[in-house]
Amino acid sequence: MAKLRGAVVIDIERCKGCELCTIVCPSNVLAMHENVNNKGYHYSYMANPEACTGCTNCAEVCPDTVITVYRIKVPS
């Protein structure tokens, strides 16, 4: 069965550090970075990029639509 691999790109400067994406990720990919963006918010980032399946949960709940999601099928 083909495996799904995904990745997200976060618009770091527009992330407001609300953390809502981190709690909806089924694979615990996202966490808040220790660095802050130009507004002083800790931004979300892929702490475990390999676990991402590109399911778009994070992007769906992101209030500022800063998450772009990519997904590919990987032949097992």
Partner: peptide
Amino acid sequence: NKVFSKTSLFTEKPLSYCPGCG
């Protein structure tokens, strides 16, 4: 490979809402 991206109907302006606002 893009499966989710920001609609072009948003303007360039960052939203003025508080972090996490619906």
